[in-house]
Structures are given as C-alpha cells and as structure tokens.
Design a binder for these strands. Structure first.
Lengths: 301, 301
DNA sequence: CGCAATATTATGCGTTTTCGTCATATGTTT
DNA sequence: AAACATATGACGAAAACGCATAATATTGCG
C-alpha cells in the first residue's frame, strides 16, 4: 500500500483517463497505467473495467476510492501539523481527566464538587471517551489522568493504579421475572431479549463463546457501545444487559437490579497517568477526589 | 510521505529503540535508523533527541505520532474494505445509527421503544460519538444514519436532512439569581463560574470573541466536551453553561431552567445518510422514529 | 574500581526492488 | 486518416533495504 498509488486512484476516478491523470500528476501515461495495475494487484481487486480501450470504474473502485480519500486526508492533516510544528504556538493551569462516557451524569459532577472545594482556582477539562482512547490520551500526555478498565497490556509510558473492581452481572428491571433469582446463568437467558456491548472486543467475544458452549443462541436486540446506554435501554424495558457491577452500581437510580452472572467474570479498573511524570498538586488532588467518589459509588456492593 | 515510514514512527514510539522496532517489524536495525532519518528529513522535524546513544521522543514526535496512527488506521480500514469486497460478506439485517453522546439517557431509549414496535425483528446498533466522527461514520458507510449538528460543510457523499433547530441559551439551576431574568447577556456573566464546551471549535471561538468584544473576562471553571456533562455539572451547582436549547430541552428533568442568551445564535441539526444509497425500509423506519422523538423532546419550546 | 560483556545508534558499501520514462503496439472513435 | 485511448518491452535512476562494523553508553562481576 502506497500513498502515491492512492493519489493515482483518486485522480483516475476524478478524470476518467490515464492520460489526464498523468498530466494532472506530472507523470507519464504509462506510469499511471502501471501504477493502476500495481494497485489492483496489491488489493487483488479489479478497480477498472477495460471496455473498448476505456477505463470504467467498478463499484469497488468507488468504495475504495473513498477509503483512499480518507487516507490522503489523514496524510494531509499530518503534513499540516508538521508545518505548524515547524513554525511554533501556550496557557493557565488546567487539569485534564478522561472518564468513560458512562460516568458523566452523577459520578463526574460529584467528583468535581468534592474537588473544587479544595482547588477553587484550577480549571478542569473533562473528556468522556472509550478506554482505548483514554489510554492513548494519557500516553500522549494530552491528559493528566484517565480512568479506564484494566484489560491486559497498557501502553508503555503509562502507569495504572488499580482503584476499583467489579464482576459481571445481569442488569434487569426490578419487575423482571429473572429478578427473583439469586444468580443468572446462560440457560436463563434463552429467548430473552439482550442488549449487548463491546461487539468484537475480547471480553464480548468471551461472552459469545460462553453462549456457544452452553448451546444457547443469543437473542441480541440491540448492540451498543456504552454501559450507560445499555442500562438506559434496560430501564426502558428494551431488554436486559450483562455488564460489570462497577457500572451497574452507577445506575442504581434507574430502578434496576443486578444479579451475578454465571460464568463468573471479574473486571478491574484503574487510574492511568503518564509514567515518569510527577502529578502536579492539582492533578493529585483530582486523583484523590476520584478515588473517594469511587468508594462512595460502590458502597453496598 | 510513505506508509512504511509511518509504521516505523508508530513502532518506535511504542518500543523506544530501533532494535526493538526492527525486530517487531522484521527489519534490520540499520534500516530502521535510516528510515527514521528519512522521515525526519521529509518532515524537516527532529522526532527523536539522540541522548547518550538513546532515542528520546520529542513532543513533536508525540503529536505527529498520533497523526501517523490516524493515517495507518485509515489504511487499515481500506484494507479491511478490500477484504470484504473480495469475500462478499453478508449477515442479518442490522440498522446502525450514531447519536451525540448527550442523547443516550432518555432520547435514544424512547426512540428505540417507538421503533421496535413496528420493527421487532431488526437488530439495532447504536453509537454515541461526536459530530465529526458521526459524519465520518456516515461517509465511510459504517452506519446508516447519523444525527449531527449542521455546521458548514459536510463531507462529500453525505446528505443531511435538517430535522431540528435550537438557539443558544444559558442553562442554570432553578434557584440561580440569574433565573429571574427573561434573557441573559454577556454582561450578566461577569464573575459567574462557567462550564463551557467545544473548546477551539468554531462556535466556541465565536462565543469567546463575543465575550472579548463585550470586554468581559470569561471565568471558566470547567471545560468539557459534551452537552450532557455540562448540564449535569450545572444541575450539581458547579456553574452555568451556554448550549443549544435543543440539548437543554433533553435535560429538563435535571431541575434546570434555560434563558435565551444574547447575542443570539441559532443551531441546526440534521440526520445524515450516505448520498446515493437508498435507505432500507428498516433504516427509514428508524429515521422516522428519530424524527418523532425529536418533536416530542422539543415540545413546549 | 576496572574491565568485559552487553546494549544502543549511526554509517560504509553493496544488492535488490521500486518507480518511473521513452518508444511502441494495438484498439476505438470521429 | 487523424485523434484518442490503454498496455507493454526495455531500460535507468532512485529508493529501500541488509550485512558488517565503528563509536558510545550501560551493566554486571571480580
């Protein structure tokens, strides 16, 4: 895969001929012809039908042409940033923290109320992102702190302190028939509408496998990507979900109950910061406020 | 600019040494050393400081490493699409929709309850993302529908139907002193703790400029990036925020009031889909359900 | 503390691959 | 017949490496 080849694809789709493309790009026609062949060979896809000495774009070319455009745009953005860096640009004390988007409603405000009591002069910037992006923001030093789920290897240059844990639970409306059980197994979930998260993520795949081994077909009604939306859907009677008790505890106000899910799985959550970078007093204060709020939110577990 | 060079940058930032990078990429150490030099030369930027025989990433490397990652992800996506085109994959009918993360709590569930009444057999996948990413997901045909704020140019190949509008309002707790006013100007906000969103986005910059022209210094206490978290912070007494009435209407249950903000600004919201791709019946149904829910949520405006 | 072993980056030199061009063959349309 | 189009043979320059090695730094051990 080669940037130049993608530029050729883009231009060919725009001009419709190798000659015009060559002219537009300052190449020879035969070069363009060859590069098209190279790209088709690399992708193992026919991008242009050869019809009466003419090139006719295939539907595949149109789809992949868009992808090519995305790549080229990303390249241009990088070049633009490099340009900015070569020419040079600063601010006041800000502490930045990222949390999963499931934590904005009550957790984050409660944490910040606690925090500003002792740090009234600090400006705070909050982000609500996925674990992957949080880890990246920490590693790239865009943010001071990131709360994330600990799942295997974290990137280099990141230190993660474990601050919470949970276990997989089924989350149901209070009046759901399965709420009478002390624990819920896969067999109980046969023909039960499900709201599942994390499609194609490792933990989700483990869950899919567990269903398969138990010979129970998942009746997935809704795929979504945040614990918060899953819980909200449950609260509105759209089905039941399987998530970590840590998150389920954040949604107790939604008139939901949680029951341990069998097979048992546990989760750990940590607070990430860049390795080798001492936290400022202000950031350390926010770290402490977060830990206090976690203890409050998981009370009664 | 060369994909291979970007892979080297990414891996070097991850491993920290040319030897480990060479091993990870199946190259020789000297090849990696040269390619790093080539990249530095191409960009005219020093990406790694050479300190005692070690490579130390510069801040520039960190920033551009992110850009490199974006390019590589776009390339991977293209490869994935090519793979799909070669194999001609298929599956059950799924309708995918992306909404701003501020809409998961009540809006999305209410919409889906409405929808599944008429479409009980369809599996739904929901995403909660930023407008930029939603636009991208639609353009890349990852999703069928995306609700987003209409702000200037949308990407090529995207059709956006306007479905809602709003005006800028100040959102306050019910018992806030400014709640007595019929409208709130910038002068009212002198020395008032603010919770602002959209830092460095065009609309935010326009707001910053308005404050500057009015000669009022913003007392920003919290920067955040979602309307939902801003409203929640307001509800918890952390300050007041300025957002679109469209979103403020979604949070009426939070014991908040909204007052028109002067200078007046309006916002438009639309439903995006890929141009030239007819919506399936199921996707059209979801589009209709979304529009119905918007009417309900903005009632009383 | 001194020294050997180990780890690291950079560079000389050579080989292979890639990226084109020029010239030309072949086919289509006006 | 002229103009326009794509594809391919032959060739050369540039790029992309690898092997071997030099220079420097760090670590482990006696």
């Amino acid at each position: 895969m080669n940037i130049r080849l993608l530029e050729v694809l883009r231009t060919l789709l725009a001009t419709g001929s190798t000659i015009a493309t060559a002219k537009a790009m300052g190449l020879s026609q035969s070069g363009v012809s060859r590069m098209l062949q190279q790209l088709e060979s690399d992708l193992a896809i026919t991008l242009f039908a050869r019809d009466k000495g003419r090139l006719i774009p295939t539907p595949e070319a149109v789809v992949l042409g868009r992808d090519a455009e995305n790549v080229l745009l990303a390249v241009e953005r990088m070049s633009g940033h490099a340009e900015d860096l070569r020419s040079g640009a600063s601010g006041p004390e800000i502490v930045r923290i990222a949390l999963p988007s499931s934590m904005w409603e009550n957790f984050a405000p409660a944490m910040l109320i606690d925090y500003v009591r002792d740090f009234p002069g600090v400006r705070i910037e909050t982000f609500f992102e996925t674990t992957t992006l949080i880890s990246k923001l920490v590693g790239d030093r865009v943010i001071d702190l990131g709360f994330l789920r600990m799942e295997g290897e974290t990137g280099p240059g990141i230190v993660v302190d474990k601050v919470a844990s949970g276990q997989s639970v089924c989350v149901l409306p209070k009046d759901h028939p399965l709420a009478e059980l002390d624990e819920i197994t896969i067999k109980h979930l046969k023909n039960v509408p499900l709201i599942l998260i994390g499609k194609q993520r490792p933990n989700r795949m483990a869950l899919d496998q567990a269903f398969k081994r138990a010979g129970v077909k998942q009746m997935v009604k809704i795929e979504t990507h945040t614990n918060s939306s899953a819980c909200s859907y449950v609260a509105h009677g759209l089905g039941i979900t399987i998530i970590s008790s840590f998150y389920a505890n954040l949604y107790r106000h939604l008139n939901l109950v949680q029951r341990p899910f069998i097979p048992t799985a546990t989760q750990e959550f940590g607070l990430a910061r860049a390795d080798g970078v001492p936290l400022s007093i202000a950031a350390q204060g926010l770290s402490d406020a977060l830990k206090r709020q976690i203890q409050l939110s998981q009370r009664g577990e």
